[in-house]
Design a protein around this nucleic acid. Sequence first.
DNA 1: CATGTTCTAGAACGTCAAGCCTAGAATACT
DNA 2: AGTATTCTAGGCTTGACGTTCTAGAACATG
Lengths: 195, 195
Amino acid sequence: MARPRTFDEALVLEGAMELFRERGLHGISIPELSERLGICKQSLYNAFGDKRRLYLSALRRWGEQQVEEKLALLDQAPSPLEGVRRLVGEWAGLAAICPSPGCLTVTAIVDNADDPDALAIVEGQVEGLERGLRAALVKAQALGELRAEASPERLARILISTCYGFGVLARLPGSGPVIEDSVATLLALLDDAAA
Amino acid sequence: MARPRTFDEALVLEGAMELFRERGLHGISIPELSERLGICKQSLYNAFGDKRRLYLSALRRWGEQQVEEKLALLDQAPSPLEGVRRLVGEWAGLAAICPSPGCLTVTAIVDNADDPDALAIVEGQVEGLERGLRAALVKAQALGELRAEASPERLARILISTCYGFGVLARLPGSGPVIEDSVATLLALLDDAAA
DNA sequence: CATGTTCTAGAACGTCAAGCCTAGAATACT
DNA sequence: AGTATTCTAGGCTTGACGTTCTAGAACATG
């Protein structure tokens, strides 16, 4: 019937995701995407539609990947609170890697302030993380790992906000060590809230 | 000698700042800036140079304004710790106003990841806030408002990161109440660290 | 082998941006 | 009054981008 795709669509999407992470929606053009991904423009259009849809696909993929990865950390941890510690440490620690390719969620919010589709995807991701964190904190509280007066809901939210803050500051050159130290501080605050 | 400027340069810069806050560097064009500011393109070029320099000027002004305003809160407060509380409450609370025009610092970092000049301005602003917060926390500690084991340096940094996180999440529609609640949580955490 | 779809490479199109330039009106100084 | 500078209004140039189109090569299926 037809010549099959000679490229792995998922792999290309992954590549596009990386480029969007580093440069943002407007920071990379279709011609450059085509060149860097090793695929001609036409194939990009055939496979993903237009630029906006390619971006949304990449954003969706990023979201799924991030949420999945982080919820897995929660599941695999020996205890709920330890899971939270690992999630926060991993997430925020990633921001400290220098030079960081950046958090696509952060750039997506800034680059697509007026695109409801993009914002909806981001919202879903944020909610997914918040739900996971909250559930783990509730469990931790039930197990006595967390003080009874602490609010899992509020704690989850503040942890998330802080991590996104790291995601912003991580884009400043040389911020790696500072952020790494801040991650330790955040974890210490979490311990304070627990004890 | 010459016809004087018929517009107030500072006022126009303020207007440009607002537009850049809402839409980002690439989100608003020179023709639209000209129209919205009520000044013809040529006058913009005469007064501010090219678009990049106009943006940098707006960013500088934003930084000065923000730092100044926030350090003033520290000075006017009845006690150092209360100053910190007010600064954080004011800053993060601003993000909760809906719809928020957004924090120019956050968008500047994302929009200008490869412009050292822009990043340097932002860095200066972040450092200014950090220095002020740290100094206030040191004073608070000397007065016994803050536990002796607490680290003013680390506390200052984590507060800043969290507030920038609010600045990101504030761009999601409907996030106002959630952020407002998170501000309260953050202040409660500060109290925990103090007591 | 024939067919039809997808591939590649690259040209072409329309749009819009940034920046520059012109021309004429306005206004402070000498 | 004359002069020089800034103003406004708008057109022009150049270039980039997103998108579509053309033309021909590759290849799985009938």
